[in-house]
C-alpha cells in the first residue's frame, strides 16, 4: 500500500522535475542554432525556430513536449538533425547501461569484501592499509584514474586495448575507472556499518550465548551493516547507468553521457530534458527499490 502511494506521488514529482529542467534550459540565453557552421540568414533561422516551435512561449512548448511524452515521444534532437531523442536513447543507453552495470558489480565486488575485511581486522595494519585504499579510491577522480590506467595497462604494458567498445576486453579499463569511486565509497560505508553493528546489543547478547565469532559476523552483523550500502546503491546505480561523460570521452565509448553534456553545452533542449527525466525516473525507481529492500533486510523498518 505504502509503495503504491509512493509510486503515485512520483508522477507529480516527475512533472515538476521536467518543468524545472525545461524552464532552466530555456532561460539560458542563446539557442541551439547559434553555433551552426555557416551563419544562417535570419529567414533560415526563423524557419528553423518555427519548425521546432521555438518561437512560441515556453509554457506552450512545454505543453507540446508533455503531449509528446504521453505518447512516448521525447521529440527531435535540435543539434543532431534526423535523430530523435528516442533514437539517441535507443543507441546510447544500452551501451551506458552495460558499462554501468559492470561498474556496479565491480564496486560491490571490491567494496563489500574490502569493507568486511577492514572491519574484521579493525585497528591492525590490514585495517589501515585497506581503509587507506578505500579513501584513496574515493579521492582519485575519473579523469586522473582513466588516463593513468590507459598509460600503464594499455600503452606501457599492452595488456588491454586503449579505447573503443567492441570486445569484452575493451570494457575492463572503463569498468574499473568508472567503478573505483563507488567501490571505495561502498567499502567505507560497509566498514562503518559493520563496526556499528558489532557494538549493538543483540550482538553482545548473541556472543554471551556462546555464538561463534564467524557466525556472528557473517550471519548477524552483515545483515544490519549492509543497510547503509543498500541505501547508497540506489543513487549510485542511477549515476552509473546514465553514463559518465569523462569515461565515455576518454575511452571513446558511444554511450549516453556524452550526449547529456554536449546537449547542455549546445542548448539541445529536448536531449537535455529527455535525459534529465530519464535520470530522475531511474533515481526515483531505484530509491523505491532500496526502501523495499530495507523492509526485507531489516524487519524493524515499517513504512506506514
Amino acid at each position: 500500500m505504502y509503495f503504491l502511494k509512493r509510486l503515485f506521488f512520483a508522477i507529480p514529482l516527475l512533472l515538476v522535475i521536467s518543468a524545472l529542467a525545461f524552464w532552466l534550459v530555456h532561460i539560458a540565453p542563446g539557442g541551439p542554432f547559434d553555433r551552426e557552421r555557416a551563419p544562417a540568414s535570419p529567414e533560415i533561422e526563423r524557419n528553423l525556430e518555427a519548425k521546432y516551435h521555438l518561437n512560441e512561449p515556453v509554457w506552450k512548448q512545454y505543453l507540446r513536449y508533455l503531449d509528446g511524452l504521453v505518447h512516448g515521444d521525447f521529440g527531435p534532437s535540435l543539434k543532431y538533425r534526423d535523430h530523435t531523442v528516442n533514437d539517441i536513447i535507443a543507441q546510447g543507453l544500452p551501451v551506458s547501461m552495460t558499462l554501468g552495470s559492470l561498474a556496479f558489480c565491480f564496486a560491490l565486488g571490491i567494496g563489500l569484501p574490502l569493507g568486511f575485511f577492514t572491519a574484521a581486522r579493525r585497528g591492525r595494519w590490514e585495517d589501515y592499509a585497506g581503509s587507506f585504499l578505500a579513501t584513496l579510491a574515493v579521492c582519485v577522480p575519473g579523469f586522473v584514474l582513466a588516463p593513468f590506467l590507459v598509460v600503464v595497462f594499455a600503452i606501457k604494458l599492452k595488456w588491454l586495448p586503449v579505447a573503443l567498445w567492441e570486445s569484452p576486453a575493451q570494457a575492463i579499463l572503463p569498468m574499473i575507472a568508472l567503478g573505483a569511486y563507488s567501490a571505495g565509497k561502498v567499502a567505507r560505508l560497509f566498514r562503518e556499518g559493520m563496526l556499528n553493528a558489532m557494538q549493538s546489543e543483540f550482538i553482545t547478547a548473541a556472543r554471551a550465548k556462546g555464538m561463534g565469532e564467524n557466525r556472528l559476523l557473517f550471519k548477524h552483523a552483515v545483515r544490519i551493516a549492509v543497510l547503509p550500502v543498500v541505501s547508497y546503491s540506489g543513487p549510485m546505480l542511477a549515476d552509473l547507468l546514465t553514463g559518465s561523460f569523462i569515461i565515455e570521452n576518454i575511452f571513446q565509448i558511444p554511450g549516453i553521457g556524452v550526449f547529456l553534456i554536449n546537449g547542455a553545452l549546445n542548448r539541445d533542449y529536448t536531449v537535455v530534458v529527455g535525459l534529465a527525466l530519464l535520470y530522475a525516473v531511474l533515481l526515483i525507481a531505484l530509491n523505491l527499490a532500496v526502501d523495499f529492500a530495507y523492509t526485507w533486510l531489516d524487519p524493524r523498518v515499517k513504512y506506514e
Binding site: 514529482l13 522535475i17 524545472l20 529542467a21 532552466l24 546514465t242 561523460f245 547529456l260 553534456i261 547542455a264 537535455v272 535525459l275 534529465a276 535520470y279 530522475a280 533515481l283 526515483i284
Partner: peptide, 8 residues
C-alpha cells in the same frame, strides 16, 4: 536531488 547535478 533528483536532477542530475552536473546538468544543473
Amino acid at each position: 536531488y533528483s536532477l542530475p547535478t552536473i546538468i544543473f
